[in-house]
Design a protein around this nucleic acid. Structure first.
Length: 878
RNA sequence: GCGGGCGUAGCUCAGCGGUAGAGCACGGCGUUUACACCGCCGGUGUCGGAGGUUCGAACCCUUCCGCCCGCACCA
């Protein structure tokens, strides 16, 4: 027996373990392969709404495909997330009063591994709680031996091809983390600052040129002043020199297109080592790049003694004060401008001149762009391709080295004279060094590690045992679809495309399904600082994973962010409860699956109707899931279960079941069959409750639904069943509405009269009399016109008038008013349709079936109207 | 500045060329031993504004207004 109330916790408990133990998560080995690579969550992270959304979508797809008979591999794993993880552990050390530098590199890395071992299971456990069904036996971690080997192979190979190189360039430098970061890890924020104008005196004493800056401390590194070649104001100054105040350095005034006469004073100070634009100008004009900062962001020894060792911001104040004292501060104005911050450290990022490893992204991007252009990979929704192209076509060399300790150590070793040996192992490096020097030398490995995304970019094939190779690699690459948020199209999707195409010669995935972000009920992005985080696990605890999953999917309109509040989840928990109770009713009614049940062969109108309706729902759901229209699939099932099966089918079945006989037997079998189909259709979206019901109610074999066949289409000839049930629903609804509007007490059992039924209607009434009486609260169905005192209620359905004598329950005026309201609506409809049909253009140009449809509609409305008019007249007549 | 998106019922959103919809919220009524996590009943809303295309536009085009998100700028 099913429990009286649905208890998600009880229903969901133990099911993940059972599925896994039964091997359900593993590829079945037969069927067309279907593969999804799980975007590896940060190993030390915990589940947030974004994960819940992302994994619910993947799991729904995977379960759907599994049921369709595909050989499904959902490859799971986690990411080492270099900076984020290192920071967490560093914070821990700080709390203990020590630091990574204090304990040293080796001890620190050990410590991170230790921490990973402790906290690395959380996210996986949480995903399991959600119902995620990847092949956990294949779980990978980006720093596993195999994946690390893949990283080294990729690095060495790209290096040999000249696509990875070391260069001294400006990078985004994080002064707190002491590492370079990529462009993508920099977030610009608008800041209220000041714009200072300084007059740099000309060397020849003939005056000065005024430049403006928001970062005065950088003037200590100025090696030039640029003006626009066309700028009349400064034309005569080009080629002259100024003497840099405070420093005394003689620097040239150069002409360069970069200088914008409209901006600031039109003359711009050039600090090649500390500004990306200035760096380019410096290169073009042969200006020296003078690095004035140390890795902490303090001024170094290239600046005058007074400023050495000062922090960049302290130096700023000092420089301004000194320039003011020197009389060259022309003016100071408040100024709003954009300042780059590190997305992790949230400190101001400095452009900084260092030696770093770069990947030639512009070259790798070529095929990655072509692959999307020619449709080898497509985006869903398609417009995300524009974002992808936009970034790919403007891609810059990718700085892949990080001055961190946690991550893949760069496989480069340096000899005593600085010669570099890039090899997959230290042994190989030594061999190369021997060949180079003709003797054994001491080598030192590059201290840096690689950007985390370098290894994540290899994920679609490194997880399948590349470079060693395996049958899985052959079978599942390219994967079918990547499911991810738009926020990492650049970070991750682009990198996988570049590396996948380069190393595998084929795209990593054929489709990229991009979903939105989860926001709170007010549409705010969830963040810890706002305190509006909704914890998915709390929701799972309160309402069940099934409810959360279904809520997510039902809210997931394509290409939009989703706003998910608790009430939404609650609503779908109610839906699960509804399903549970419907199943329980069927159980009480002894509905059991009939092995020989053939949906096409059911005979009663009611059963033919529900079978036909379910067949249509199946088609809608199948097409919706295939097209990533999850909300459409969810809604179709919600409607079928609640509005059709529960509200009408079961209610109409009650009298049939009570009456017994062959019709009752068929109905029991049909109900059981329909529920079984519903469980299957719903399973990818709400896996737990559907399988529990399938087992408990229908006696299906344990953990079988997850691998049950997806329902095949059913070709039903409903033989007029739909029309008949629609008539019945309309009749009952009309009477209910009229009763409610006339405030007839619910308890009043009234008779139904029909004046002139034809044979068909007479038969229908006879067949459905118990149902009509039950659902419309009636007692007796009669032919003819009633002798009524005390008013009547009259409704028109399919052109026939049905009369309910009210016997004093209501007064005539109220019924008259109700009829008037309905007639007014119909009159308006008829008038509108008449206007349309009277338009010769419409009749001539619109498709025939559309015109015919309007004519029929017009006739139907007019007939109903006539009946209502007659009914009104009868009211008057008394 | 460039790109993308959004503006439909109180709220959250479907619909995207042929009668304006759902859920939630709200209000009324509670009869039916599956379900109060329920049942029944209740929606005229300039489909952001203005033009245009069309026999017909919430849906296509143009333009304007308002909001959001990327990217760039960052003297």
């Amino acid at each position: 027996m099913l429990d009286k109330t649905y208890d998600p916790a009880a229903v969901e408990a133990g099911r993940d373990e059972a599925w896994e133990a039964a091997g359900r998560y593993r590829p079945r080995g037969a069927g067309t392969p279907y593969c999804i690579m799980m975007p590896p969550p940060n190993v030390t992270g915990s589940l947030h709404m974004g994960h819940a959304l992302n994994h619910t979508v993947q799991d729904t797809l995977v379960r759907f495909k599994r049921m369709q008979g595909r050989d499904v591999l959902w490859q799971p794993g986690t990411d080492h997330a270099g900076i984020a993880t290192q920071m967490v552990v560093e914070r821990e050390l700080a709390a203990e009063g020590t630091s990574r530098r204090a304990i040293g590199r080796e001890a620190f890395v050990d410590r991170v591994w230790q921490w990973k071992a402790e906290s690395g299971r959380t996210i996986v456990a949480q995903l399991r709680r959600l119902g995620a069904s990847p092949d956990w036996s294949r779980e990978r971690f980006t720093m596993d031996d195999g994946l690390s080997a893949a990283v080294r192979r990729a690095f060495v190979s790209l290096h040999r091809e000249g696509l990875i190189y070391k260069d001294e360039r400006l990078v985004n430098w994080d002064c707190q983390l002491h590492t370079a970061i990529s462009d993508l890890e920099v977030v610009s924020k608008e800041v209220d600052g000041q714009l200072w104008h300084f007059a740099y005196p000309l060397e020849d004493g003939s005056g000065s040129i005024t430049v403006a800056t928001t970062r005065p401390e950088t003037m200590l590194g100025d090696t030039g002043v640029a003006v626009h070649p066309e700028d009349e104001r400064y034309r005569d100054l080009v080629g002259k020199h100024v003497v840099l105040p405070l420093v005394g350095r003689r620097i040239p005034i150069v002409a360069d297109e970069y200088s914008d006469p409209e901006k600031g004073t039109g003359a711009v100070k050039i600090t090649p080592a500390h500004d990306f634009n200035d760096f380019e100008v410096g290169r073009r004009r042969g200006l020296e790049a003078l690095n004035i900062l140390d890795p902490d962001g303090r001024l170094n020894d290239t600046v005058p003694a007074a400023y050495r060792g000062l922090d960049r911001f302290a130096a700023r104040d000092r420089v301004v004060a000194d320039l003011d004292a020197a009389g060259v501060l022309v003016k100071t104005e408040p100024y709003r401008y954009m300042v780059p911050f590190g997305d992790r450290s949230n400190t101001v990022i400095e452009p900084y001149l260092t030696d770093q490893w770069f990947c030639d992204a512009p070259t790798l991007a070529k095929d990655a762009i072509a692959a999307v252009e020619d449709g080898r990979t497509t985006f869903v929704p398609a417009n995300w391709a524009a974002t992808y192209f936009d970034w790919m076509r403007n891609i810059q060399p990718w700085c892949i080295s990080r001055q961190l300790w946690w991550g893949h150590r760069i496989p480069a070793w340096y000899g005593p004279d600085g010669a570099v040996f890039v090899e997959e192992s230290e042994a190989d490096a030594h061999a190369a060094a021997r060949a180079h020097y003709g003797r054994e030398v001491a080598l030192e490995q590059d201290p840096d590690v690689l950007d985390t995304w370098f290894s994540s970019g290899l994920w679609p094939f490194s997880t399948l045992d590349w470079p060693a190779g395996s049958s899985e690699l052959q079978r599942y690459y390219p994967t079918d679809v990547l499911v991810t948020g738009f926020d990492i199209i650049f970070f991750w999707v682009a990198r996988m495309m570049m590396q996948g195409l380069h190393f595998m010669g084929e795209v990593p995935f054929r489709e990229v399904y991009i979903h939105g972000l989860v926001r709170d009920e007010a549409g705010q992005k969830m963040s810890k600082s706002k305190g509006n985080i909704v914890d998915p696990l709390q929701l799972v605890e309160d309402y069940g994973a099934d409810a959360l999953r279904f809520a997510i999917l039902a809210s997931l309109a394509q290409g939009r962010d989703i706003k998910l509040g608790e009430s939404r989840v609650q609503g779908y928990r109610n839906f699960v409860t509804k399903l549970w109770n419907a199943a329980r009713f069927c159980e009480l009614q002894d509905c059991r699956p009939e092995p020989a049940f053939a949906p096409e062969a059911v005979e009663t109108t009611l059963n033919r109707w529900i079978v036909a309706d379910l067949a249509a729902t199946r088609d809608v759901v199948t097409a919706a899931l295939e097209g990533y229209r999850f909300n459409e699939a969810a809604l179709a099932l919600y409607r079928f279960v609640w509005d059709r099966f529960c509200d009408w089918y079961l209610e109409l079945a009650k009298p049939v079941l009570d009456a017994g006989g062959p019709a009752a037997a068929e109905t029991r079998a049909t109900a059981a069959w329909v529920l079984g189909r519903v469980f299957r259709l719903l399973h990818p979206m709400m896996p737990f409750v559907t399988e529990a019901l399938d087992e408990q109610l229908l006696g299906a074999e344990p953990h079988g639904l997850i691998v049950a066949d997806w329902p095949a289409p059913v070709a039903v000839d409903d033989g007029g069943a739909r029309a008949e049930i629609e008539w019945l629903i309309a009749l009952v609804s009309e009477i209910r509405t009229a009763r409610s509007e006339l405030r007839v007490p619910a308890s009043a059992r009234l008779a139904l009269w029909i004046a002139e039924p034809d044979a068909a209607v007479r038969a229908r009434l006879a067949a459905w009399r118990p149902a009509i009486e039950r659902l419309a609260r009636l007692d007796g169905v009669h032919e003819g016109m009633p002798e009524s005192a005390g008013g009547t209620l009259q409704v028109v359905v399919d052109g026939l008038t049905y009369v309910v004598p009210l016997a004093g329950h209501v007064d005539v005026d109220e019924e008259r008013a109700r009829l008037d309201k309905e007639m007014a609506k119909l009159e308006a409809d008829v008038a509108r349709l008449d206007r349309k049909l009277a338009n010769p253009q419409f009749v001539a140009k619109a498709p025939e079936d559309v015109v015919e449809e309007q004519r029929e509609r017009r006739a139907e409305r007019a007939a109903t109207l006539a009946r209502l008019e007659a009914a009104a007249a009868r009211l008057e007549g008394r």
